[in-house]
Amino acid sequence: MTALTQTLTVARESSVARTAPSKTGDRLFQGAAYASALLVLLVLAGILGSIIYGAWPAFSEFGFGFVTSSAWNIGTEQFGALPAIIGTVAAALLALLIGVPVSLGIAIYLTQLCPGWARKPVAMTIELLASVPSIIYGMWGLFVFAPLFARFVQVPVSNLVEGLPIVGTILYARIPSGVGVLTAGIILAIMIVPFVASITRDMLDQIPTVLRESAYGIGCTTWEVVRHVLVPQASVSIIGAIMLGLGRALGETMAVTFVIGNANRLSASIFDPGSTIASRIANEFNEADGLQLSSLMALGCLLFIITFFVLIIARLLVRRTKVA
């Protein structure tokens, strides 16, 4: 009761002194919010601008030949991007080839098969894979995975296919050390799985239960429900999720630098060491200057163009279904 009286008194007193709230603070706040949002645009423009600025000497020196040349000679100052571009694309595509089926499998398991009590802990374990830093994946790949991979995959497969046409070239390891383009692809696959799986799971969860239950009701098996009901419903966003994974795989740096072997040449075998754009930059940037530095910037510029193209498509696909 006393509290109420007090409140009333306070209210009455303040009503005497009441003035219209100042507009200045309100405008300042809105201005600050707007400016912060614009800063996001500015940063993106700054990234592109600074990389083009740094890459300009290389582009004007080599022209379009930079993209098609496979030279990387510091002595003669001849630089070309082809091996790095091919390595980047190859590792990323291998990552998709391995990672996408696994991600879909996990999403299907979590939404359709997993017993209720296990759903949360399992989903959390998979999502925790996404927060493991990339450098830890690199160490795991180099010190745990690569030796096993060399012993149980590279050596037997190389022995098996040696001398065969085509397969004998693609799957032959000259030095079965465990590192190489395929190893990088496998590590990248593990790294994109949590992202692709969790987006796909969310999309599958959004599909109305009635659809699923009707399909089961007419006697469909789990496979048929997934294949004919769930996947068509979620296909656009699943493709978006895959593109998102591709964007991550293309730009991933540290893990790849550990396991790809950092070789500076083109090789037809996916067991052989190679390099990606990001790993090349990480390896050489701190010791580079002059035209080499500029060429590394030019590599960064190419990476910017490739990944942003992929990411923009990914976001468009994921977004469109969210609105629909």
Partner: peptide, 26 residues
Amino acid sequence: ADVIRFLNDVLLSAPSILIGLFVYTL
């Protein structure tokens, strides 16, 4: 706001090494 929201999502998964190159130049 639509444009900023979209580009923010793109920036969310941009390769971090490019951000390193940017800050190096900056």
